[in-house]
Amino acid sequence: MNAAYFEFIRIRFLTMLAYRVNYYSGIIVYAINIGAYYFLWKAIYGDAGTLAGFTVEQMTTYVAVSWMARAFYFNNLDREISNEIRDGSVAVQMTRPINYLMVKMMQGFGEGVFRLLLFMVPGMILATLLFHVTLPTDPMRWIVFFVMIWFSFLINTQLNILTGLFAFFVENNEGLMRMKRVLVDLLSGVVVPIAFFPAWGRAFMDWLPFQAITYLPSSVFTGRTSDAETWHALLIQIGWFAVLVVPIVLMWRSARRRLFVQGG
């Protein structure tokens, strides 16, 4: 049984590998993105030493790390799920003795591992060579970071699953998926670190799951948090992961009741 789920990770990984040419270009796109933000922030900083508690170096590292973390947690499960619901192939999956959402999650993980190895690692090396990215030397921080981006992956995937499952309830959830993507990029801190938001914005963000996706792990990794804060950040992630399980289960239950197959 569990072997089956592992198999889904492996096969997704191999599938991604089969289409790897797509991803060579992806590495360049990510490098360009990091570069653009790097120069943008440099211009914003001007002569200022620190902004919102970030030094220029920390900011550069933050940008690079955020994008690389994004490479790992990002996936298109929302689109996959909603497509499978709309074309009815979700029905095929339901005739198998496996949990559909678990399978999806595993496939997303296979994709994440692929990007981590063939995308994040070379991209990070490239970014370190090109820009002033300073990576921490403390192994503990690396370990914590990987634990945290694992939770980033889980939380982001949960949001994707929720968005995707909306296809059961509305004919077309395209707009919803786009909105979710923009929200995640903006509010998770990929585009602008949460520390740059006004105070009310930060307070508001504390109540949303998005910062747990990028901002918290990247902050920890760039060394902006004390040990206590680090554990606190991890706890927030775990909390959100647990909380998000509830709507998914509820939604999946009611979706089973209203499963109808569009177009056949």
């Binding site: 049984m1 072997a3 089956a4 198999e7 889904f8 096969i11 198998r96 003795p97 496996i98």
Partner: peptide, 8 residues
């Protein structure tokens, strides 16, 4: 092979 694992 995947189905083999799925169905055990």
């Amino acid at each position: 092979r995947l189905l083999r694992k799925v169905y055990g």
